[in-house]
Amino acid sequence: MQTVTIAGNQVPAIGLGTWHMGDDPSLQTQEINAIHAGLAAGAEVIDTAEMYGSGRAETLVGKAIKDIPRDQLYLISKVLPTNASKQHMERSLDASLKRLGVDEVDLYLYHWRGTTPLAETIDELQRLTTVGKTKAWGISNFDVSDLEELWQLPNGPKAAANEDLFNLGSRGVEYSLLDWQAKHELPFIAYSPVGAPDQLNAHLDRNPNVLKVAQRHNASAYQILLAWVVSHQQVLAIPQSSNPDHAKENVLAGDIQLTADDLKLLDEAYPAPTEKLPLDVL
């Protein structure tokens, strides 16, 4: 299985996303089973946020991991822009830790840019790392210009990862962002790695070329979409599934090695960008 190294921690390149989980109490058992299935298949990363269901996703994750050894997990959560100030951030992180049932998260991300001065947010993220409430911090929904601004701050280059939308139908980050992050040794976390319902290329799994490659590997279309994302160096994918079988399949996609012919077919269906595009955000 392919791996990604974040702040010195080597983790499997496919983790578990939790956006939209925890909202329906009738699905709680199934969703917890899905998290367990993903972890049993080899995942270590669980990505969540205070925004997801106003804390309900974190609460669900807390229930799912309460009997799992902490050193077998890599937990990521995120702070909302409205809470990303020196005045509010620690209280937000404390609430996230309480919902998760842990003393610290492995990575705490600034979910997207808000009105708080970037320097203030970053200094507080670094302080919370220093006091041990998170092992590392990073950012989300940052483009090249944002990262260049970040890197000018004293603590900016201490960022451990950047999380953005990236999938076969949304390849804008390949034009310059992935190269910038590789050059600066900043790992990339891909959210919505198999597409999203409200995205232009929402049904990537139905594309004939994707299906052809899937047939070659005796895999599902979703597995091929994930294998394509993590074929990029230092890219971690965090697909979300509330179905235990699908969660397991998602993680096992990390074992699929796409060939040059596979990649050519996928490029023909969804060409790489030839110019800088606005950052896709959901």
Rank of each mutant, 00 (worst) to 15 (best):
Y191Q: 03
L177S: 04
L178E: 02
R206W: 06
F166R: 06
E185F: 01
N141E: 15
A159Q: 01
K183Y: 04
L147H: 02
L178T: 02
L147K: 04
P208Y: 07
L211R: 13
R171D: 08
Y191E: 04
A161E: 00
Y175T: 07
I189L: 12
N209M: 14
L178A: 08
Q152H: 06
R206V: 10
G195V: 01
D146H: 12
S192W: 05
D198L: 14
G172I: 11
A160F: 01
F142E: 03
L178G: 01
L165C: 14
L150N: 00
L177Y: 08
D179L: 08
V194T: 14
L178N: 01
K158S: 11
F188A: 09
E149P: 06
A161L: 09
W180P: 10
P208H: 09
G172V: 04
N201F: 13
P187E: 00
L178V: 03
L150G: 00
S176V: 15
A159M: 03
N155Y: 12
P187L: 07
N167T: 09
E174S: 04
L177M: 05
I189S: 08
N141Y: 08
V210K: 06
A190E: 12
E149G: 07
P208Q: 09
A182F: 02
A160T: 00
P154S: 12
S192K: 08
P187I: 04
G169W: 00
D198I: 07
S170R: 13
G169Q: 03
V144T: 10
F142W: 02
D143T: 10
I189K: 02
N201L: 10
P193S: 06
W151G: 09
L186Q: 00
A159F: 08
G195A: 03
L211M: 11
F188G: 04
E148V: 14
D143A: 15
N141M: 08
E149A: 11
P187V: 06
L165E: 15
A202Q: 14
L204W: 03
L177F: 07
L153Q: 04
N209Y: 13
V144N: 04
E174G: 05
Q181V: 00
Y175V: 11
N201D: 06
E185V: 02
Q199L: 07
A190L: 05
G195L: 05
L168P: 09
V210T: 04
S176K: 13
P193V: 05
L153F: 01
A182R: 14
Q152K: 14
E174I: 05
L150H: 01
K158D: 13
G156V: 00
L186C: 00
L168E: 08
D198H: 11
P187D: 02
G156L: 04
